[in-house]
Design a protein around this nucleic acid. Structure first.
Lengths: 200, 200
DNA sequence: CGTCATAATTATACGTTGTAAATTTATAGT
DNA sequence: ACTATAAATTTACAACGTATAATTATGACG
């Protein structure tokens, strides 16, 4: 009987391909990223990836899931540092912005790509839920510390979307040249903190 | 001598093509939008548009400029209504969200597409500057009315990016299912207003 | 008017893409 | 060693953007 790929071999190849795809996608951008170049990059013929992935979309989903996870890790690390709840929340916010600016391609993969059938990719769904939880997790500490008050899920989403909006406009080059990006971030965080402050 | 297209005829055709492209882009999405279908839609051969536009990118730029302008118009209309500065600012914010949700394709064209050489298209640059000014214009009224205090350009960008972030996450389907979108918008506006309130 | 130079348009063709189908290669069980 | 068949590659195709070649149509002039 012929050689049969073990579960492990399949997983290894998927891993290798996803890694190369992540790099290629960052280099070439959404449009310039082709299966043919990806295949040659890992040293196989253009059709070989089809043994391991259904199509290009599924490869993209794997790349996205991986990006989600790296993002969540970075935020969890920042949040895991010692300090007051406020310090830790600030560290998480800073890590968020850093990731977006330094790993722009991955950030876009995470939040700015609309795959028609996202729910068909379980890994992607899982990674997405994890990343969202990560972004909300630092709020309860602020409530318990008596810094903020309100619904933590709602507050988390407000902070998150404000951060996301500033980052996206920055990445799209839409901000006015005479308006400093970091100042927008700082003032957004300050104003929202005042708006949700406890005891008013 | 042969027939020569008048300035007006050229402009008419460009207009017609841009209009059809806007519709097609909304129907088919970024990837599904093809020059060949666009050409057949307006009843010419696939190469005819090249007489009027350099390439696909230039057509896309025209579509974007048009979307910018419609967006700015909608906001200016809302802001032009009678009422207190606060009323007018709220009307503008509401119009913003409405446009994003109802004309999603255009909204994405405006704020979520990264053309490598945007500055090569003067119409696009002009429309972009106009739209940005439109989004900032309602802030000075709030300062003069003694509602807010601070740098109007900075405040404008903070409100704008917060709104943009919530809208983008909503459009990308990234918000938690148990967090109402309108509530996020309302709380964002409320909290930011408190954070920038005059007299504190 | 008929002819002709030439702008406008269309037809053809090429290189590239994702991927379906056909073909080849390599290996485990007899 | 032989063979059934999984894996991999080769070939092939339709669709894309668009360069180039061919065609069509028109307005000035003899």
């Amino acid at each position: 009987m012929p050689r049969v790929l073990s579960k492990e071999e399949v997983e290894d190849f998927r891993e290798k391909l996803t890694e190369a795809a992540t790099r290629l996608f960052a280099e070439r951008g959404q449009d310039g990223f082709t299966l043919r170049e990806l295949a040659s990059e890992v040293g196989v013929s253009p059709m070989t990836p089809y043994r391991y992935f259904k199509d290009k979309d599924e490869i993209l989903a794997a790349v996205r899931a991986r990006a989600f996870d790296r993002f969540a890790e970075k935020l969890e690390n920042a949040f895991g540092k010692k300090g007051t709840p406020v310090d830790r929340a600030n560290a998480a916010a800073q890590a968020y912005v850093e990731f977006a600016l330094q790993e722009t391609a991955s950030y876009r993969l995470i939040f700015d790509i609309w795959q028609p059938n996202e729910n068909d990719y379980p890994d992607l769904v899982r990674a997405g839920i994890r990343a969202r939880a990560t972004m909300i997790q630092h709020i309860p500490g602020l409530l318990e510390a008596g810094v903020l008050q309100g619904d933590p899920v709602l507050i988390g989403h407000v902070f998150w979307s404000a951060l996301h909006g500033a980052v996206m406009l920055r990445l799209a080059g839409k901000l006015s040249p005479d308006c400093d990006f970091q100042k927008i971030i700082d003032e957004t965080m300050r104003a929202l903190s005042v708006g949700f402050a406890a005891g008013r």
